[in-house]
């Protein structure tokens, strides 16, 4: 019951994001979307996924979107909205195929689903002896899937470095008086313009 309501809220929010022209509002609504998704994961007992969704979706990605908005503009460019049948059909067909794919899967929460019968019992029984921590999820993530976790962390680190370079580098160049797009020292240009306005001769060598 709760999850159906939360799903309805999710769809409402998604439609709202589609309709809005105000990009700041869209960023805020996507943060709201993430909080809703986190609540939904919480209802489905996936607390770790929920927390990741809330931290990344509602926290970091909202900040990143705002950083992008600070560089670009706030309003979306107005253009005609019309329903094009080709893409709409393609999307609907993809959605139908995905739903068809879920029909084979075991129902949510089934005890004899392959996920619960394959490796999970072994983890539950042996991991306190083999690894140690009382939290089994921790020992799975940090020990049994250690390389996987290491790879994920590397990917996340690389992504963070890339984003910081994109967002932070521009500002540093601007502070130093350099326009990154032109490669011209803006302060020098301003100085030349000012001198010209005062009617002084330009120093030799300057363009």
């Amino acid at each position: 019951m709760i999850d159906i309501l939360l799903f309805a809220f999710l769809m409402l929010t998604a439609l709202g994001i589609l309709r809005l022209r105000d990009l700041f509002a869209a960023a805020m609504l996507s943060s709201l979307f993430s909080l809703l998704a986190a609540s939904l994961f919480m209802v489905m007992d996936a607390v770790d996924v929920a927390f990741t969704e809330a931290a990344v979706g509602a926290g970091i990605s909202t900040i990143l979107m705002l950083a992008t908005l600070a560089i670009t503009k706030r309003q979306e460019k107005a253009r005609k909205r019309q329903l094009r049948p080709g893409p709409a059909l393609l999307v609907l067909a993809c959605g139908a195929m995905l739903i068809y794919g879920t029909l084979d899967m075991p129902h949510f929460g089934t005890a004899d689903a392959p996920v619960h019968t394959y490796l999970a019992p072994r983890y539950l029984e042996v991991s306190p002896i083999e690894v140690g921590p009382p939290n089994i999820v921790t020992s799975v993530l940090a020990s049994y899937r250690g390389y996987d976790t290491f790879g994920e962390t590397t990917v996340v680190f690389a992504a963070a470095v890339g984003v910081l370079l994109l967002l932070g580098g521009r500002r540093r160049f601007r502070d130093a008086g350099w326009d990154i797009t032109m490669g011209v020292d803006l302060r020098e240009v301003q100085e030349i313009v000012a001198r010209r306005q005062e009617g002084l001769k330009l120093p030799e060598g300057d363009p």
């Binding site: 809220f9 409402l12 929010t13 700041f24 509002a25 943060s31």
Partner: peptide
């Protein structure tokens, strides 16, 4: 709150909604 998020008319209203 969701309905307010759609109809809010200022930046700070939306931040408050979130």
């Amino acid at each position: 709150l969701i309905s307010k998020a759609f109809t809010a008319d200022s930046v700070f209203d939306r931040i408050l909604v979130i």
